[in-house]
Amino acid sequence: MAYLELNNVCKTYGEGVHATEVLSDINLSIEEGEFVAIVGFTGSGKTTLVNLINGLLKPTGGEILFKGKAVSGTSHERGVIFQNYSLLPWLTVGQNVSMAVREAFPNEKRKAVKERVAQYVEMVGLTPAISKRPKELSGGMRQRVAVARALSMNPEMIIMDEPLGALDALTRGNLQDEILKIWSKDRRTALLITNDVDEGLYMADRIIPLRPGPRATLGPEFKIDIERPRDKTELNDNPFYKKTRNAIIEYLMSIGEERKTVSGKVYALPELSPKSFVA
């Protein structure tokens, strides 16, 4: 039995004539302790998929099973890191994290909560900024707060929705390493949604491309059998890495081409010639 299972899941927005099917026929199963990456174009329905899995949205059809039980609403067992950090701007770093801790561990004493907050803020290296507000932090620091908040609830599975999408390349690399480091400590099940093939290749055990929407569905999976910890510079010379990377990109490009030819309608233009204003 898989840890997380999606069977024939589809999601439609709107009703009747205006209905648009964003996702259709999604089948996915993730084993415990696995790190899976879903790679797709922007606008292909990645965020919808994430919100279905974390319970913010309900599927129109099919079922989502988490540990054998149907997902109904959000749960503390599945921690979420949002694309745009979603920190509460009126709370400090510590308060943002402690809000999550207090919800996840309602019976813990004040002191224990404080310690847990301090521990997770320390883990993402933000102890000096613990009493700062999100506005005073850089993008990378904000995303680290979001990571700390998600992990402080001690979730069994962690879902990341393009967590590093808004960051510059250097910060991105650093945070990838940090997330991997944290993940490798207890190897929780992780689902990473990204638009960066390299990021998926570097971090995940398995990459599944999402064919672009409407009616987006998952493509064939690619296993990444590269030993951890992986080294970015060595990866570039790894023949398996190169092969897989090319295969994935080729696949994504081919669906991109498909999409282009679908919309390759020829429009007849009216014959117009510029009017002369001189004469």
Partner: peptide
């Protein structure tokens, strides 16, 4: 909507 999502995910 992001804040509402946070509230939902934290199960407030």
């Amino acid at each position: 909507k992001d804040y509402i999502n946070v509230a939902k995910v934290l199960k407030l």
